[in-house]
Simulated assay, not measured.
Amino acid sequence: MIKAKANRLLQGGLPMSVWKPEDIDVIGNSMEVRVAALRRDGTLQRPVTIWIVRVGNELFVRSWRGQKGEWFRDAQAQGRGRLWAGSIERDVCFVMETDPELNDQIDAVYRTKYRHFMQYVIPMIRPEVRTTTLKLMPCS
């Protein structure tokens, strides 16, 4: 019973659950995914292509443009959106991640996963971009 409750976290009143193992594998191994945040009026933005990293059984994204990214601002404000990765399409909840130690781990995964694109990795691990780290969770 307690575990079931833990799997349905509430972030800002939004019911969330954990990723299915097969989904987290596909999404976490994707080099790029598309996300669209909800706008204030409840419609989805135009999807943007972004990098995604996996730490354990959690998925994280960042805004390459930092706080200026429109998708990020709406994701932060509304907390909901949609993700596409391969054949997977899921409604997601965006949860701010501020733990410095976890952000260090996320930086390390960016460096490893995208090592062939180091000129783009460097901006992704800048302090101002780290402040846009969002955990993605399946959202119902």
Rank of each mutant, 00 (worst) to 15 (best):
42 G>H: 11
42 G>D: 13
42 G>E: 12
43 T>M: 13
43 T>S: 14
43 T>V: 03
44 L>T: 01
44 L>G: 01
45 Q>W: 11
45 Q>N: 13
45 Q>R: 15
46 R>N: 13
47 P>W: 12
47 P>R: 08
48 V>D: 11
48 V>M: 11
48 V>E: 12
48 V>Y: 12
49 T>Y: 06
50 I>S: 03
52 I>E: 02
53 V>H: 07
53 V>P: 07
53 V>W: 10
54 R>Q: 15
54 R>C: 05
55 V>S: 04
55 V>P: 13
55 V>H: 12
55 V>E: 12
57 N>P: 05
58 E>L: 04
59 L>H: 10
60 F>K: 06
60 F>E: 10
61 V>N: 08
61 V>T: 09
63 S>D: 04
63 S>A: 15
65 R>V: 00
66 G>V: 01
66 G>A: 01
66 G>Y: 08
67 Q>F: 12
67 Q>A: 14
68 K>F: 10
68 K>P: 08
69 G>Y: 08
69 G>L: 01
69 G>M: 04
70 E>L: 13
70 E>F: 06
71 W>A: 06
72 F>A: 00
73 R>N: 08
74 D>V: 00
74 D>E: 14
75 A>D: 03
76 Q>G: 00
77 A>N: 09
78 Q>Y: 01
78 Q>E: 15
78 Q>I: 04
80 R>N: 05
81 G>H: 09
81 G>T: 02
82 R>C: 01
83 L>G: 05
84 W>R: 10
84 W>L: 03
84 W>P: 06
86 G>H: 05
87 S>G: 07
88 I>S: 05
89 E>R: 10
89 E>G: 09
89 E>S: 11
90 R>T: 03
91 D>A: 07
93 C>K: 09
94 F>H: 09
94 F>I: 03
95 V>C: 04
96 M>R: 15
96 M>H: 12
97 E>V: 03
97 E>S: 03
97 E>K: 07
98 T>I: 07
99 D>K: 07
100 P>G: 02
100 P>V: 04
101 E>Y: 07
101 E>I: 02
101 E>F: 06
103 N>A: 08
103 N>Y: 02
103 N>P: 00
105 Q>I: 01
105 Q>N: 10
106 I>F: 04
108 A>G: 09
110 Y>F: 15
111 R>T: 00
111 R>V: 09
111 R>Y: 13
113 K>N: 07
114 Y>W: 07
114 Y>R: 03
115 R>E: 14
116 H>P: 09
116 H>A: 08
116 H>V: 02
116 H>N: 13
117 F>A: 11
117 F>I: 02
117 F>Q: 13
117 F>T: 01
119 Q>W: 14
119 Q>V: 02
119 Q>I: 06
120 Y>W: 15
121 V>K: 06
121 V>A: 05
